[in-house]
Simulated assay, not measured.
Amino acid sequence: MSKLFVSEHPMIQSKMAMLRDKDTGAKEFREIIHEVAMLLSYEATRELPLTDVKVETPITTADCKVIDTKLAIVPILRAGIGMTDGLLNLMPTAKIGHIGLYRDPETLNPVEYYCKLPSDIEERTVFLTDPMLATGGTAEAAIGFLKEKGATKIIFLCILAAPDGVKKVQDAHPDVDIYAAAYDPQLNDHGYIVPGLGDAGDRIFGTK
């Protein structure tokens, strides 16, 4: 079973209070999403593989370690874009892909309408981002599409998760770890996380 990591870091908890506040404006909301994503990616990169290297210092040589995997950041359009810059602050050499999905009104199944990934995606550790993990349908489908394109190591990052979404992803993709800044207990009748923070995409882009 995949791991669910929910941050208890004081900085993240304090910033989550600002994200939840209905009076937080779009500019500040975007900035806080950026900051929380960066802090969360610090935790999500903790177990990346390392290799030994020797480095010439101004005095002598030092035995050091460097990350031994290529990295990719793949936001789910559109809200996942709001987390990208935060991750890039920590891993500036990562390549960026994008996945766009919509829900078919008849079948209710997610349908891919856009997918652009690094050509060597199968060689990279992929950080898939979407602020909200509510029902889990979009995340489950996006992970499936990544695997179809050759990705084998995928880590899912979200700002806020709910039990339904976590279960759906873990049941479908037990090899994908989930990192969340916070975890709320339920969804309402419209599929929104409760108490939640509203529609993350609308609040990021000021379209609410």
Rank of each mutant, 00 (worst) to 15 (best):
A134W: 01
L160R: 00
G137W: 01
K167L: 01
I155E: 14
I154K: 11
D171W: 01
A181W: 08
E148N: 13
L160Y: 00
C158F: 06
D184R: 01
V176W: 05
G165A: 06
Y179C: 10
N188I: 09
V169W: 05
A182W: 07
L133T: 03
T135D: 12
V176Y: 02
P131F: 08
V176N: 07
G165F: 02
C158H: 03
G150P: 10
D184V: 00
A161P: 02
E148L: 14
P131Q: 13
G144W: 10
D171N: 11
A181T: 07
L160M: 14
E148H: 08
G191N: 12
E140S: 15
P185A: 02
G150A: 13
P163H: 10
A151C: 12
G191S: 11
V169N: 03
C158I: 07
P185T: 05
V169K: 04
P185I: 00
I159N: 03
M132S: 08
K168A: 11
H173Y: 02
H173D: 05
T152E: 15
G137S: 13
G136Y: 04
T152L: 10
A162H: 04
K168L: 05
D175L: 03
E140C: 12
T135I: 15
T152F: 07
A139M: 15
K149E: 15
D130H: 05
V166I: 13
G136N: 12
G137P: 07
D177Y: 02
Y179L: 11
T138N: 09
T135G: 10
V176I: 08
D175N: 08
D171L: 03
A181D: 09
Y183A: 00
K147C: 09
F156E: 05
Q170A: 09
N188W: 10
T135H: 09
Y192M: 03
H173E: 01
G144R: 12
H173W: 05
K167Y: 00
A182I: 04
Q186A: 14
E148T: 14
P174A: 02
I159P: 01
H190V: 10
D175H: 04
A172G: 05
Q186H: 11
D189R: 07
D171K: 09
F145S: 14
D177F: 00
G137H: 07
I178D: 03
D171V: 10
I159M: 09
P174I: 04
Q186I: 13
L187P: 05
I155G: 05
A181N: 12
D177L: 02
T135W: 01
K149H: 14
A180C: 11
K167D: 05
M132E: 08
P163G: 12
D164M: 07
F145H: 13
V169I: 08
N188R: 03
I178N: 04
D177Q: 01
G137A: 12
Y183L: 08
D130Q: 06
T152M: 12
L187K: 02
L187S: 04
A139S: 14
D175S: 10
P174H: 03
C158T: 11
D171M: 04
V169T: 04
